[in-house]
Structure formats: structure tokens, C-alpha cells
Simulated assay, not measured.
Amino acid sequence: MTQTRFHFTTGKIEAERIFAALEMAFEEEGLPIAVLEVDEDADIHEVSLYTEDDVDAVETRMKGVLADLSIQKSIEREALPDIDWVARSLDGLKPVRAGRFFVHGAHDRRKRHSGELAIEIEAGLAFGTGHHGTTAGCLEMLDRVVRRERPRNALDLGTGSAVLAIAVAKMAHIPVLATDIDPVAVRVAAANARLNHVKALIETVTAPGFHHPIFGARAPFDLIVANILARPLMRLAPEMARHITLGGSIVLSGILDRQRDAVVAAYVGQNFRHVRTLHREGWVTIYLKR
């Protein structure tokens, strides 16, 4: 079914007010709502709401919420096309090996080696098929961390295709919360969890940052993996500290080599201890402990 995205831009403070009001207004329907930073220096944030049904009625209700806040905004409407991202994204992609993990498409199932943990990913719309240096670096680091730490409750923040959540679930056989700001990515993540027979272990939720009640219900975590970008990871350091157990581990990526020291400093400032940095294709994956 075609999905419609309503969106507009505003400043951070106003975006947070609108997000809270929309979340309350559409709580019963559970419609995905997101706030995305477009330009930090110019204070431009984009508010989005997604729906598949009653498009005109939803837009009218959104306008009513804004009116109640005495905010005047022109709401733009975007129809998101139904595309076979599987065929488009993985056609011709080679499988990836990182640590004990073997990430592949359906066409490469037979190439799995004995002893490898296979992860089949058929999603191109959501970031993370294992072919990017950050995803492969996270997989390699998780192979070491999960074996050493034996976590019992994990979070994959910014899950994308859920390849990292699937890796943790397959290796540790523990519950994993997989969240993303993008509802399309969350649907893809859930489909990939089913495809890899770990749906019972992985809960997928649309949630920007830590602003969702699911985190209060599921925290504290003793393993958090976040393959996002350096700047948002630095801003999230205090929230990471609040949601991790004492002695818990975090694995961070989406970080360029030159950004590594700044990210480590942000987490050391929250009483994390740097354990290891893995370099791959100009990107780094950082392992820290609380």
C-alpha cells in the first residue's frame, strides 16, 4: 500500500513541541512521527508524519494540532512509491564476511562457510546491507564484544536494515530492541528479522533518539550498538549513559577517522572507558564500557 508523508520545517524548540503534540494526538493510531535535523547551524528541523489511510483526514487533524499550538505552517504532502528495493539494491552485490558473520542476499545462500553466522539481507531502502565500512566494522567488533561480554539485553539504535540487531540476536540469543527514526526502515527491519528467523527476539519500533516510552520499558541495556553519524552520537552521549547498565558496553560507528577523538571525548565525559577502535575504509568503530 502506498504511504503518504506529511512534512514541514521549523526550529528545534518548536519541532519538539509539535512532535509531543502530534504524538499525543495520534497515539491511538500509532502513526509514525519523526523529527530530523536538516541544518544544525541554521536551526532547521523537519517534522514528518506517515500514514497509509485516511490521508485527507490525517492532514486536517495535523492542521488542528498546529492551530491549537498557535503555529502556522504549510504542510507538504509526499506520496512514497512502492519500489522493489530488494531487486534494485542487491542485484550483483557480493556477500560480505566480517568476523564470524556472513551477510548475503538470497542469490548467495550456498556460499556460506561452515561455522559462519549467516545473515540474509534483502533490503536496500534502509541503510546497512553489510557492504559499507561502518556496518562491516560493527559486525567485526560485535563478534568480539558479544563473545566476551555475554550481554542479556541489547539495543540497536538507528537500526536501518536491522543487520546489527540480527547479528546480536543470532550470536547471543537475547532480546534486542531495534529502533529507527524512519518508519520505512522499521518495516524493512521487521521483515529482515522474520527472514532470519529471529523475529521472536527482535522488537522493531519507530523512535527518534530516546524520545519514546519503549526505552523506559526496556532499559537499562547492557549492550548498545549505534551506527549513525558522529555528531548525533556525540549529542546522544548523556542519554546513552542513562540507558546503559553499569559495566555495560556500547559499539559506535558512522564515524570518520578524523572524528574519532571527538566522539571518544564525548563519551569519556559521561564516564565511559575507551576499550578499542577498529579502522576500516576510512571509518572507525569504537567500543567503550560504562
Rank of each mutant, 00 (worst) to 15 (best):
R147N: 11
I75C: 00
E59I: 11
D261F: 03
H7I: 01
F6W: 05
F6K: 04
E23P: 01
K199D: 14
H173D: 12
T159K: 07
A34C: 07
V58F: 02
C138P: 04
T10C: 12
V96T: 03
T51W: 06
S253V: 00
S74C: 12
P81M: 05
G160V: 05
G30F: 05
A207E: 01
A178P: 00
L31V: 02
A165L: 08
R147M: 08
G30D: 05
W283E: 07
T159W: 02
C138V: 01
L256M: 14
F19H: 12
P220Q: 09
M234Q: 09
G216Y: 06
I181Y: 09
L229G: 04
I71S: 13
E28F: 14
I244F: 01
A178E: 03
A167T: 06
V188I: 11
R152Q: 09
R17N: 13
F210Y: 08
R148Y: 09
S74Y: 14
E59C: 11
A230N: 10
V275K: 15
R61E: 12
V275M: 15
D82C: 14
G282D: 03
E59F: 07
L36A: 07
D84S: 06
L278H: 14
H113D: 13
L49N: 02
I119Y: 02
D43T: 04
F8L: 07
G137T: 12
T277R: 11
L142K: 10
A178N: 01
A207K: 04
Y287G: 11
I255H: 00
A15R: 08
V65I: 12
P183K: 09
K170R: 06
D82K: 13
L164D: 08
A136E: 15
L256A: 09
G216P: 08
I228A: 08
E203P: 04
M1L: 00
Q270L: 08
K63N: 13
T10A: 11
N271V: 08
R273N: 09
R112M: 05
D54A: 15
S249N: 12
G11A: 15
F127H: 00
H173F: 09
Q259I: 02
Q3F: 10
L31N: 01
H274P: 01
R231F: 12
A226Q: 02
L125M: 12
R112P: 06
R242V: 04
N196R: 05
A189P: 05
G130A: 10
L278Q: 13
Q259D: 14
K111D: 14
I202R: 03
G254I: 02
R109A: 00
I83C: 07
E27Y: 09
T135R: 03
S114P: 15
I33L: 10
P81K: 07
R61Y: 03
R150Q: 11
A162P: 03
E120G: 14
E28S: 15
H132N: 14
G282N: 07
E203H: 08
G209W: 00
P232E: 01
L157M: 13
G124Q: 01
L155T: 03
I174F: 00
I33E: 00
D68Q: 11
T10P: 13
G92I: 06
L117C: 13
T10Q: 12
V205D: 12
R152N: 01
